[in-house]
Design a protein around this nucleic acid. Structure first.
Lengths: 194, 194
DNA sequence: GATGTTTTGGAAATATCTTTATATTTTCAA
DNA sequence: TTGAAAATATAAAGATATTTCCAAAACATC
């Protein structure tokens, strides 16, 4: 009955994410997307409904990948302090080795789309909450394991970690100096968690 | 001989800065500027040379104001620790009381324009260096005054402060919770400077 | 007040944007 | 083979972008 799609929707979303990530929402045109995705105008509108809807789905994919990657990485660590250091160092390395200096798609989009897109603000606020919950969960585990001193306000620390992480993603765009960024991160981590 | 300008160039730059700050570069059209600035098409091109050049000048104004405000504020403080806390708290209050949640014009522009504008990257990298120099200068003063323990790597701390500040400006756009942001800032500051 | 220079308003030029519409192609069950 | 359903290519529509152009207006100096 129906004709089959000639492209893999998930693959196209991944590519769309890359382009929006690199250029931002407003500077990415449908023409750019057609060229980069390799599918036609009509296919974009048929499959995704338009530029904004395509962006939203690409963004959602990135967001979920990002969240799960953090959680999976920390879950695999035996020592929470070293685990946090490792994930931060990895982010720094990734950012500094990216020839495009794209930074973080979420951070970039927050900066570009708020204010102006109130619904986007809600989504990203929830994302922050999710990330901080991941931090709190693993920090609690660290306390239980005796790797982090008891009595600390873990919610406050997790907000600080999120803030530092967010800052890193911006700093990495202008001044991708891995050693400098690692040093400042180590200072913050050891100061917060000792 | 010549006809005089009917507008104050500095005033117009200030207004342009506000609009670019709120909407970002790409989503601000010449039409938007004409309406918001109250001057005509030809005046914009005659006085500033075009959209990008107007942006650059508005951005430069903001950047300088921002840098001098930080330096002046810290210079007026007797205690560097309390001074840093005060400036961070003020940024937090400003961000959280802004009904537009504009965040920081510099941070927003970094997120939106890098990569894609290599010259802009150079400017903002230099800006980071300038801000960190201000921090280092005042941290050194704090050490000399005995307000900060000796032996710390002040360059690393200043990078950490810059990173935290940058992160705050993004967090404030999605989740403008002043109490939360102040608590995390206090945690970072007291941890770094004790 | 005339002169010459600059600014200004409005239109025009040109390019590009997002979206819709239409016609063609592909697929597969009947 | 035929016909319904979905995907695609192409074109066109309609809006909006940035920039240039030009005549009219404004002002300081002669």
């Amino acid at each position: 009955m129906p004709r089959e799609k000639q492209f893999d929707e998930q693959e196209v979303l991944k590519k769309a994410m890359l382009l929006f990530w690199r250029k931002g929402y407003h500077d990415t045109s449908i023409k750019d997307l057609i060229a980069f995705l390799g599918i036609s105008n009509a296919s974009i509108y048929n499959a995704f409904g338009g530029k904004k809807k395509l962006f939203d789905r690409a963004f959602s994919n990135y967001r979920m990948t990002n969240l799960h990657a953090l959680n999976d990485f920390l879950s695999a660590q035996k020592n929470i302090k070293r685990g946090l250091q490792a994930i931060f160092h990895r982010i720094i390395e990734d950012d500094c080795n990216d020839p495009d200096c794209k930074g973080c798609f979420i951070v970039n989009s927050i900066a570009e789309l708020i204010p102006g897109d109130p619904e986007f603000k809600i989504v990203t606020s929830q994302h922050q909450k999710s990330i901080e919950e991941v931090f709190v969960t693993h920090l609690k585990l660290g306390v239980r394991r005796g790797q982090i001193p008891d009595g600390k306000n873990l919610e406050v620390i997790s907000t600080a970690l999120y803030t530092h992480m967010t800052g890193l993603r911006v700093v990495g765009k202008t001044t991708p100096n891995a050693e400098e960024m690692k040093a400042s991160t180590d200072a913050v981590l050891s100061a917060l968690l000792s």
